[in-house]
Every structure is written in C-alpha cells, then in structure tokens.
Write a protein that binds this DNA or RNA. Sequence first.
DNA 1: ACAGTTTCCCGTAAATGC
DNA 2: TGCATTTACGGGAAACTG
Lengths: 422, 422
Amino acid sequence: EKQPCMAAHLDKPLIIKTGVQFTTKVSLLVKLPEVDYQLKVKTTFDKDLPPGRVRQFFILTNNTKVMDIEDYSNGCLSVEFRHLQLKEKKYINGTKGNESLLSVTEELHSLSFEACFTVQGLAIDLETFSLPLVVISNVSQLPGGWASVMWYNLLTDEPRNLVFFGNPPPANWSQLSEVLSWQFSSFAGRGLNKDQLAMLGEKLLGQHASCGDYQVSWSKFSKENILGKPFSFWMWLDSILELIKKHLQPVWSENYIMGFVSKEMERALLKDKEPGTFLLRFSESHLGGITFTWVEHSDSGDVKFNSVEPYTKNALSSLPFADIIRDYKVISDGVVPENPLKFLYPDIPKDEAFGRLYNSQPSKVHPYLRCIFIPISELRSNANTTPCSSQSPEPPMTPGEFDMLSEQLCFDIDTMSSPYSE
Amino acid sequence: EKQPCMAAHLDKPLIIKTGVQFTTKVSLLVKLPEVDYQLKVKTTFDKDLPPGRVRQFFILTNNTKVMDIEDYSNGCLSVEFRHLQLKEKKYINGTKGNESLLSVTEELHSLSFEACFTVQGLAIDLETFSLPLVVISNVSQLPGGWASVMWYNLLTDEPRNLVFFGNPPPANWSQLSEVLSWQFSSFAGRGLNKDQLAMLGEKLLGQHASCGDYQVSWSKFSKENILGKPFSFWMWLDSILELIKKHLQPVWSENYIMGFVSKEMERALLKDKEPGTFLLRFSESHLGGITFTWVEHSDSGDVKFNSVEPYTKNALSSLPFADIIRDYKVISDGVVPENPLKFLYPDIPKDEAFGRLYNSQPSKVHPYLRCIFIPISELRSNANTTPCSSQSPEPPMTPGEFDMLSEQLCFDIDTMSSPYSE
DNA sequence: ACAGTTTCCCGTAAATGC
DNA sequence: TGCATTTACGGGAAACTG
C-alpha cells in the first residue's frame, strides 16, 4: 500500500554527527494531478527500529514540512528539510542501545519520509528511506564512519540493509583499490597510481597481493590493528588523506609525493641516483606523517640514506611543507649546514619542482627584523660525542664563508635604517 | 518581609557564557530550628528585570533544589546548583534586548535565590542575589566582560547596582594600577613593578601620569581605541596577560620580561650596555606579541639597536620562547649566522637566566634524523641588494668553520647507524 | 556596508559508561 | 582497570541583524 515513488537525498555524506545540523531533500518522482490541499511530508529517524540492539536517535527539531513546486521545469513537488539535528533516545529502563558486537560506526540507521494524500476518494500513502546512515558523536569517529560507508557502497546494492555489518562480506582487492584511489582523487585532487596501490595491497595482504586478486576482510581493512601498530589500515590511510587535504594539497596534486613506497623500494630507487636525490613518503609508523629520504655518498664511497623524522600536521601548520624542503639544513660535525635535498626523484631539480609552491611573505611589520623558522637536523658521524648540556656557555662565534642561508632567506627588507618607531 | 539571610556564591568568575555550564551555591546564614519538611530553594536569572532595556536570560535546566546540611561543623543548610546553563529569552514582538547604548559586556545581570518556609505558623520568605554578572555568548567577549567586573569591583561597594555602566565613575590611577598589578600576580604569577606601571600609566594618561594621581575614565580604559591602534588599552593589556598565561609563564614569573617599556626607555637602558645585551618587551602595535631588542656596535663604533618582529601565540606554540632565545640567529650578508643575544639586561649571561627553561626533548622516533625549527633573521647592510627570487638555483655550498649551530643543536642521537627500519 | 553579536562546529580534553 | 563513546567547551570563522 505504501508507494516507493519519492526519492530522498542528503547533501552531505552519509555520516551525521549528533547535535550538528544537516539537510535533506525529498522529491516526488511522479507528477500528481492538481491537489487542492497541501502535501505534508514527515521525516522520522530510526523509524520501526526495535529498541535494544542499537542506539536510537530522533530528530530534535520540527520534522514536518509542506511540499512545494520547486523546479518548474518538471513541475515536481519537493521539500527540503534544513537544520535537522539528531539526539540519542535514552531509555529509562536498563535497555541501553548498542548491545551488539558492532561498534557505533558499524551501526546503520536511516531516515524515513512519509506523506499521505487522498485523490478521488482514494487514500494513498507514500514512504521512502534514505540510504543507510552512520551516526557519530564526535568528529574523531568520522574515519570509522567513512570506512563503513565505503564498504557498504562497494559491496552491496541493497538500498537499506541495516544489518550489513553483522556479517560484512570481504572485498576483492581489485575493487577496493579502485575505491581507495577514488578517495584520493576526489578529496586530494589526484588518485593513486599502480605502484602506490601495489604498496598498499602488500601492506594489507602481505606478499599475496602481487600474485592474484585476493580478498580483504572488513576486519583487516578497518578494525584490526596493523601488526605491531596501534591503528588499523584505514585509520592510517585516512590520516594521510587528511594530512594531504590540509597541508599538502598542491604538492600532492602535482604528483611530487611518491608517498606510498616501502623502505626497501625507496632504497632501491634512490641507490643509483645522483647524491642529493630525495623522495617523499608517508610515515608507516605514525599517523599522518610525511618524511623525506635522500641519498648521498659517504667519504668511503658507500651509498648512504637519511630520513628526517616525519612531519605531522602540527609541524606543517607552523611551516608549510614546500618551505621545509626549500630551507631544510643538515649540520654534520661543525661543518656548514647545507641543504642535502637537490633533486626530486628521479632527477627534477628541487626548485624546478617546488619553486612555485614556496611562500616567502615579506614582513608586514616594518621596523622589525623578519624572523622565519628554519628546519634543521644534526648529523653526528661519531656517535659517542659528549652529550651537550643545554646550559653550556655559548662558544665563540666563528665567522666564515656562509652565503647559502642568506641566499635562502629572501624577503624584502628595504627599510632597515630605523629599527625604532613601531 | 523578604529576609537577606542567605549568601550566594559562584565558583567561577562573574562572567557566564551562554550554553556553558556553571555552578553556584547558597547557604543559610542563620541556624534554623528543626524543620520537619524540606527547604526548597529556587534560583532565577534576571528576575524582575523589565524587558526591553537589556538582553534577558533564563536558566535552561532544573532550577529548584532542596537544601541540605552540608557542613556539620556549623550545622547550616546549603545547596549547590550544578550544570546550570543560560539561554537568551527571545521576544516575539519587536522588543529586542539591548536597546541601550551599553555593549553586552556592560550589561549587568544577576541570579536570585528564593526560599520559603513556615515556622510556628509564621511564613518566612528568604531571598538573596548574586553580585552583578556579565553574560557573554563567545569567549571573544571575555576580556570585555572581565574589564567590567574589575571596574565594578574597584569603584563601588553596592552589592547589586545593575545600571552601574549607565554612568560609570572614573578610577584613580593609583587604585587602578594596583588592580592591574594584581591581575598579573594572580593570573601570571608575578605582579607589575613601579617602572612597568609607570609605562602603563603614561600610555593611558600621557605625560600627566608622572605628575599626580590622575583619573582614568571607563571609556579610556576599555572602550576607546588607543590613538592610531585598532584596540583599547585593556584589550591590549589583556592580550598580553593571555600570552603570558599560555606561553611565557615561567619566563614572566622569573622576572626576565621587562615587558612594559617604551621604546625610548629601552634605547636609553641598552645604550651603555655590553654589545649583545637584550631585553624583552611586549609589542605595542599588535595584540599579544613579544619581541626582543639587543644593542650592538657598528663598525664605525655607533650604537645600534635591533628588534625582531614580535612573536605571537601562533609562533610560540610551535617554538617555546626560551628556545627561540637560545637558538635565534642573524645572518648579515653572507656571514656566518650568529646569535646576537648574549646578556639579559642588565648583565645576566643568557644561559644563566634561561638555561633551566630550555627544552631540548630528544627524538622519540629513532631511525630518523631529528628536525627542529631554528628562528632566524636576515640583516642586509646594503638595502638595495637584488631581490632574490625564490626560484633561483641554489648556490654551491661553501664548507667552512661552523660549529656554533652544531653546538646549539643538542639532543641525543645515539643510533645513527641504520637510518632504515621504521 | 558594516560592526557588534551570536551561532556554528571542529578538534582536543575530560568525563562517562561498560 | 582499560577501552569505547560521549560530553564539554575554547577558539576561529561564518552567519546574523539591525
């Protein structure tokens, strides 16, 4: 009796945070004959869900609205609900939501829409549902929720299987890798290439990856921690996606970040390159970190590799990554600090790649000396140098040739004459 | 008929933000004869306030509680209201709150408490009020609110003059300066000395300050902008208080920040000191900034002063101030960068003063090179050097004597052998 | 257009529940 | 006790509103 001839649509992704407003829109898919009364639509959250198994939510604000002709081109009725907000139902008796084994981001919910009208004495009920929704209470649960949405979309066409995560099917790596790449292309402006995906596949599946289309379980993808690490595969990958979105967007879009390379591969790639050749990769040991590794030749002619401690969002928000690459210096034992980064793998001169991305804002506050932060590492060849106390008196300054830093520090200071008069 | 024999007390300062929980406690000041029923207290916000003149708020949550014997030592009844929350009353008709000339932080509100009981057939009503309260909707209004609370407390003993800011009296500088010093001693661990207060007085009153106890108007203190600046005196002072609280606490407590010195005075103080003598002062041109100025002698023997662009909370949260002082470098025209800061005014060797405050955390992530940020400025003696393009190819490295930076970079890197194996 | 004010909501920290 | 989840709220930014 209830007709599925309405379509629901949510503006934002299918993850809703309690207490945060969201918007949804329903349209009638059929053209009705003129109706002389207003067609009311009511939206309900978690309708018909038996209490106990999962958390239940309700819509705090007004949930009934009148349909209106919005788009005159097709003459269809539609209505947009704005400023909807979810709150959890609390049960007086002991029955608490989420008693299953599912985590909150595996619980699926849905919004329902109902309308009823009478035409020529015939009562017609209309009802439709949104796709499954994940409800979270804190943005820290967003990665988990997003994993669920991806898995659901990848592995089922059912419009409303709310118990999907009771027994979620595995995904073929070939399908999954496509979805992952798509995440990067849609959120970070560039997808993942074969080599990057191969590294991810190996991380997820071990050596199997190369020899066939293995299956990845939901658990392996987003629930179990990576061996020896305190986070799952997806948590790790998503932390990188976030880092790119916030701090590495242009560098990533330009394809300057190899990113997903094993350390063995990295070594193999850099081994035969010019000294000073470097590449950028994401940390595998920490969430949301990026590091660079460069190759150099020791005095004895051996190939040497160095990597810097990964930069995380905190570091990158005080110093943009391109500027770090431009200004990075290493001191080894009382030798002039030098920037060891010369060529982006395979052989692009550093400034050719990153030049456009450097930002050297000149000082706005004129009577003052501009001050910038320079990233710097110390490399000690003899490991057992006396540990240096931070209270040791400063050594006398040794003047000498040193124009490199001065060359790097390029901003206009044209009125240096009067350092007083704020 | 209503008896003022209850006392109200708020835990937190007298500024309440809408939507944020606060706590208040009321006690009965007299010992009652045994009562056989529970004594209920009701708390009301903005009771008896005629609508229209100012905004009005109400308590969202439960506002009635039963008194209880809490402290057996005196046997008095008291009750604590927790999780109270304020929300603005909205009027349907045009009457909008705050139609006066007062800003929201000048509006004074109050909490009332009422209780009623019958003893021996005699009905007794009790009522009391809190001190005036300021209601804000965003933490950005907190400085303004705090200014009001200070001014009220300084200039009146009335327990509840809600129209105080209709015509606020001026303060004597001698009283006000005491209050300001007290702000610093209670929130930042050290008050203001005579010289610092003299500078503030002059800022507020011009040269008058030195020759008598002039009066400061409320407007001058916190409403009018400082001449040529986009902020008032109190906004400026409070921004410094916040900076100290969050980033300079120990340095301030140890009295290493002169802070409030005019640039003229600063020059006069440093003029005759050893080259490399520096002092720390707060920016007068920008909110919440700190800078250092050092003295040096030019080749021709003239005294020269340099100041660095002020550091704000953003810079200081990526690099603690003591570390900035330790690591700060200046390059002048291709000469080795050197730290120009040698003696904290008047003559304390830098490391003697700041040594204990340096923090050189060793790297936690071992196979990597630790990377720290070094604050650095460039000083060009010839102003018309060709502007340096950030895309210019890197100059060849000039090795040379340079152990100073390496000396400064002190953390333990004891396993540098295998830079691979994350 | 604009300034004063409020609302929105991320992201961290703390509290809570199991 | 520890982990999962929710709540609290500062702080920046957008939205609102005369």
